[in-house]
C-alpha cells in the first residue's frame, strides 16, 4: 500500500513532466521557459493563443481520456476476473460511440451542448452494458464472467456492423468525422467540454475509488466476497455503473481509444500490484501518460500530422501487448 502510494506519486510527477513537454510541442515552437512564463500570466499574444486555445485544452482532454479509460478498465477486469476485459473488448465503448455518432452525424451538429454528449454516451454505454447483462446472465444460473465477456465481444461486433451500415447513409464530411472518431481522435477540444468532462471524471473516479476495497475482495472471488459480507450482486451493479460512466465520457469527448482500457491496467498492475486502491489511480495516470505521449508524436512530428491519436496508441501498444501475452 505504501509502496503503491509512492509509485503513484512518482507517476503523477511523470505525468506533469510529460504535460509540460506537451505544452512545448506543436507547429508553433515554444521554449520551456516561455511555457512557464505564459502559464503564469506572462507571455505574448501568440504564445497565449497557442497555449490556452490549442495546447492546454488538448492536453487536458488527453489526460482525462486516459484517466477515464484506465480506471474503467481496472474495474471491469477486477469484476470479471479477466485481464482481457475492458470497455473496448466488452463493447461498452462501441455502444457509447454508436449513440454519439448517431446524434452528431445524423443531426449534423457541431455545437452540441457539453452536457448532452456524455449523457448520450452514458446512455449508449449503459444500454450495451445492460444488454450484456440481459443476454449474458440468466435468473436461474449464477454469474459467469466468461459468458458475460463473450456476450460483450459478440455485441461489440454487432455495433460495428450497425456503425458500418450507418456510414453508407452519410455525406463526406460526416463520414470523415465518423471514421476519425472510430480511429480515436481527441476531438472535444473546447474548454466548456473539458470542464464538464473533468467534473464527470472527478465524480465517478471518486465513486469508483470508494468501492476499491470491495473491488479487491470481489476480485478474489464472488464466493469469498460473499463470505466476507459483501452483497456481490448490488456491488457488481454499482461498480459496473461507475466503470461505464467513466469510459462513456472518455468516448464522448475523446473518441474510441480501444487499447487504452486494456494496456493502462496492464502496465499499472506490473508497477503497483493488485490492490485496487493504488491500482485505480495508477492505471488512470499510466493511460493518461500514454495518450499524452501519443498526442505529442502526432502534434510534433509532421510525418504523423493528420493521423488520429488512437491509431498511434494502437500501433505502439499492440507489440507491447503481444509481448506481455507471450511472457504470461
Amino acid at each position: 500500500m505504501l509502496r503503491g502510494t509512492v509509485i503513484n506519486i512518482v507517476l503523477a510527477g511523470l505525468l506533469l513532466i510529460v504535460f509540460f513537454f506537451g505544452c512545448n510541442v506543436g507547429q508553433y515552437r515554444m521554449s520551456i521557459g516561455k511555457v512557464f512564463e505564459t502559464l503564469f500570466g506572462g507571455g505574448d499574444e501568440s504564445s497565449r493563443l497557442a497555449l490556452f486555445e490549442y495546447r492546454l485544452p488538448r492536453l487536458c482532454l488527453a489526460i482525462l481520456v486516459g484517466l477515464g479509460m484506465g480506471m474503467s478498465g481496472v474495474v471491469m477486469q477486477d469484476l470479471l476476473h479477466n485481464d482481457l476485459a475492458s470497455p473496448g473488448t466488452l463493447g461498452v465503448s462501441a455502444g457509447s460511440g454508436l449513440l454519439v455518432t448517431v446524434y452528431v452525424a445524423l443531426l449534423q451538429t457541431n455545437n452540441s451542448s457539453a452536457i448532452l454528449l456524455p449523457v448520450l454516451a452514458l446512455l449508449g454505454g449503459l444500454g450495451s452494458a445492460g444488454l450484456i447483462f440481459l443476454l449474458g446472465t440468466s435468473r436461474k444460473k449464477r454469474l459467469q464472467p466468461t459468458r458475460l465477456i463473450m456476450t460483450g465481444v459478440a455485441m461489440s461486433s454487432a455495433y460495428g456492423a450497425v456503425g458500418t451500415f450507418m456510414m453508407l447513409l452519410l455525406d463526406d464530411s460526416q463520414l470523415e468525422f465518423l471514421q476519425r472518431w472510430q480511429a480515436g481522435e481527441l476531438w472535444g477540444v473546447r474548454w466548456d467540454y473539458i470542464v464538464v468532462f473533468a467534473i464527470w471524471i472527478l465524480l465517478f473516479g471518486f465513486m469508483t475509488y470508494r468501492g476499491g476495497r470491495t473491488l479487491n475482495v470481489i476480485n478474489v472471488g464472488y464466493d469469498i466476497a460473499r463470505g466476507l459480507g459483501v452483497n456481490v450482486g448490488r456491488q457488481f451493479i454499482y461498480l459496473s455503473l461507475c466503470a461505464v460512466a467513466l469510459s462513456s465520457a472518455s468516448v464522448a469527448f475523446g473518441g474510441n481509444f480501444f487499447f487504452l482500457g486494456l494496456i493502462g491496467p496492464h502496465i499499472a498492475r506490473r508497477l503497483v500490484g493488485t490492490d485496487a486502491r493504488v491500482l485505480l489511480p495508477a492505471s488512470g495516470i499510466v493511460a493518461g501518460i500514454i495518450v499524452l505521449l501519443a498526442d505529442m508524436l502526432v502534434q510534433g512530428w509532421t510525418f504523423l500530422a493528420n493521423i488520429p491519436t488512437g491509431i498511434v496508441i494502437s500501433v505502439l501498444s499492440v507489440p507491447y501487448f503481444l509481448y506481455l501475452l507471450m511472457k504470461a
Binding site: N216, V220, D223, I224, G229, R269
Partner: peptide, 24 residues
C-alpha cells in the same frame, strides 16, 4: 466460510490476502 479450492490473483501477497479477512 472457505469455498472449495479458492483462487486468488497470483500477485497478491499472503499478508494482503489475510488482510482481506478484516473486511467486515
Amino acid at each position: 466460510i472457505l469455498p472449495q479450492s479458492p483462487t486468488a490473483p497470483g500477485t497478491l501477497t499472503c499478508r494482503e490476502l489475510v488482510a482481506y479477512g478484516r473486511f467486515p
